[in-house]
């Protein structure tokens, strides 16, 4: 009996020892990141490629853009990620951080309307910014509302209560979505406004991109706003949104790229807004966003961070990584600005 116990203890300590040895052998660079769930699918596709290219291990946690900014501010991670540009207060708090646009995608509006039949010749369900604003303000409450019918002439839309689903917590996708709604609806702008989290007048909350997607998938009558990749991966159908030119467009790579092409110059600080682009871009998707990686200007992993982000900005934009997730390649003018900003990241 005693012998058995001691041999068990010996085995346990041997196991611990081997853990220590294995740990000591670990020589690859580990980069911890946290933030946006919007960009998480892309990071998860990049991770194995970065592992084989540089022997880097990327550990990324999708905690939401707001929590990501908090994490890099507290320096508990090597990089943060946010779809919302940092405010000047956040920059001050972060104490020597830069934000670099490193990916670009559309925020889709998936819906769950059982029994919806579109008119012959219409391939996608149509919504406008004004209607979406009214749904989220609680003034349009049923899918058979005349305002929705007017956008989808000839469609059979069931009488079904609308459940608008929003993100709880501080979310960059919420920022992007409310940025769009504020730009198309003056009522939204004055009553609710834009931000990483706002006071929602109607609807149900869910946590993270996965959370809202899950609620829409399981709730007849629900709609949400989420990175297109999540809608695709979960087989949800999403609406085509009316842009400033009056066209109904999907968040396809081409349409998101058309919206991004309206960026002619990048301001210092790299804050970019491409929601509701002007009429001159007739195919532009109106709810697209650049998503940012937030790096400290001084880091013990500076070299690895620079290499990783440079890779993401160049090879990482290749179709084999981005196409299936509906991420669009970032335009050249932004790429140049990003690479320039990247040079500010120095070793400690």
């Amino acid at each position: 009996m005693r012998k058995f116990v001691f041999s068990a203890l010996a085995a346990a300590s041997l196991a611990l020892l081997s853990v220590g040895v294995a740990g000591a052998k670990h020589s690859t660079v580990v980069l911890n990141g946290a933030g946006s769930t919007f960009v998480q699918p892309l990071v998860s596709v990049w991770t194995p490629a970065l592992g084989s290219a540089f022997d880097y291990t990327i550990q990324y946690s999708g905690v939401g853009s707001g929590a990501g900014i908090a994490a890099i501010t507290a320096r508990t991670v090597d990089f943060g990620a946010s779809d919302a540009p940092m405010s000047s207060d956040q920059f001050t708090a972060c104490g020597g951080c830069v934000q670099i646009p490193w990916a670009l995608a559309g925020t889709s509006i998936p819906y769950n309307i059982p029994g919806l039949q579109l008119a012959k010749g219409q391939t996608t369900f149509h919504l406008s910014g004004d209607v979406i604003a009214k749904i989220y303000m609680g003034t349009i409450t049923n899918w058979n509302d005349p305002a929705i019918a007017a956008l989808n002439k000839g469609a059979t839309i069931p009488s079904l209560t609308i459940t608008p689903v929003y993100r709880t917590g501080n979310s960059g996708t919420t920022y992007n979505f409310t940025d769009f709604l504020s730009s198309v609806s003056s009522a939204w702008k004055t009553q609710i406004g834009q931000g990483q989290s706002v006071n929602w007048p109607a609807g149900t909350g869910a946590s993270g991109s996965s959370g809202v997607t899950g609620v829409v998938k399981n709730t007849p009558g629900a709609l949400c706003y989420v990175d297109t990749g999540y809608a695709i991966a979960n087989h949800l159908t999403f609406a085509s949104i009316q842009n400033a030119a009056g066209n109904f467009v999907s968040p396809s790579i081409r349409n998101v790229a058309a919206a991004a092409a309206t960026v002619k110059s990048v301001p210092t600080g790299n804050e970019l807004h491409i929601v509701n682009p002007p009429k001159s871009a007739p195919t532009a998707y109106p709810i697209a966003t650049f998503t940012y990686i937030i790096l400290p200007t001084h880091s013990s992993n500076a070299q690895a961070l620079r290499k990783m982000v440079f890779w993401a900005l160049t090879q990482g934009q290749a179709k084999k990584y981005t196409a299936a997730l509906w991420f669009a390649p970032i335009p050249k003018v932004v790429l140049v600005a990003s690479e320039k900003t990247l040079q500010q990241v120095a070793s400690t």
């Binding site: 853990v19 670990h26 990141g33």
Partner: peptide, 15 residues
Amino acid sequence: CSIAGQLINWDPSIS
């Protein structure tokens, strides 16, 4: 200890 990568990791100094 909740930030994790996609690979098996034996190094106790990371998450």
